[in-house]
Design a protein around this nucleic acid. Structure first.
Length: 272
DNA sequence: ATGGTTGAACCTCAA
């Protein structure tokens, strides 16, 4: 069957619950990958989402980070954290198998560390996280499954993915060391689902299509944005991809997240 | 313009 996958950094699932519920009722993605839920699993608004028909797989922590998978299909083989990760580390990765009728789809929700600034200890931590993520995704690629890894990667991979690539080159989230690591993951054999549907424009200027706008300095109004949220797809998932859009309207509401969601549509396995 | 805003939880940190 055909299905849709939503991807959204909500910047607090509790603060964003009204917008989240409205969006899910309107666009009805069967699978949803959330980042920055910012609450422990016992505080997650499970009842409201279960009422919409979702099964939940949660990996949260108090105040910061937190990722979740919502699925209208049964979830199995839930894994929390990257392999070898400290059990008490940040809640930044969750993976599960969604059992669609006649087809299993592996999905993951990832929230890559922001890195803060180049002088911070958090910057090498981010680079190391990207390397560990790449090692894990390489292992998953060997399964030859439909695999959808959606999240906030906190890295704009290419010049078209930031509003002013010349000025921002070297900034955190658009630093050559970060771009090299996210592009290394792509070069393993993953596809950026947004770019499969929306090829980047020619030249080195910003492409104008973004998923994140800073709350400060009227960034959204001026479209000073960054494309740092995207679906990374295995070849099997890329073949089934039919559409991928940024739901920009949600960034323009009152009390928005600083990220806009994405909605990716996948075809039935039997379609050509 | 090295500013600006938001969320969670505490009076500051992370983004």
């Amino acid at each position: 069957m055909a299905f849709r996958t939503g991807i959204w950094n909500v910047n607090s699932v509790k603060a964003r619950l009204p917008h989240l519920l409205d969006w899910l009722k309107r666009d009805m993605p069967e699978i949803v990958l959330l980042q920055e839920t910012k609450c422990t699993d016992d505080a997650f608004p499970a009842m409201e989402l279960e009422e919409l028909g979702y099964n939940l797989a949660l990996h949260g922590e108090k105040s910061y980070n937190g990722v979740a998978i919502l699925s209208k299909f049964p979830l199995e083989d839930v894994r929390r954290g990257l392999p070898g990760e400290d059990q008490f580390g940040h809640a930044r990765y969750i993976e599960a198998v969604a059992n669609l009728p006649g087809r299993a789809v592996r999905v993951a929700s990832v929230y890559v560390p922001n890195g803060q600034n180049l002088d911070s200890d958090k910057f090498p931590y981010k680079l190391h996280f990207l390397e560990r993520l790449g090692a894990h995704l390489l292992a998953l690629l060997a399964y030859e499954e439909m695999l959808i890894v959606g999240g906030d990667y906190n890295v704009a991979p290419y010049p078209a993915d930031v509003y002013d690539p010349a000025r921002l080159d070297g900034n955190v989230c658009y630093h050559p060391e970060e771009r090299a690591r996210i592009r290394a993951i792509l070069h393993l054999g993953f596809y950026d689902g947004f770019r499969l549907i929306n090829p980047p424009p020619e030249g080195t200027h910003g492409g104008g299509e973004y998923t994140f706008w800073d709350y400060r300095a009227a960034s959204f109004e001026a479209n000073r944005g960054w494309r740092i949220d995207y679906p990374l797809l295995s070849p099997q998932a890329a073949d089934a991809l039919r559409d991928c859009v940024i739901v920009k309207t949600l960034r323009g509401l009152d009390k928005p997240s600083d990220h806009a969601p994405l909605l990716a549509s996948f075809a039935d396995a039997r379609e050509g």
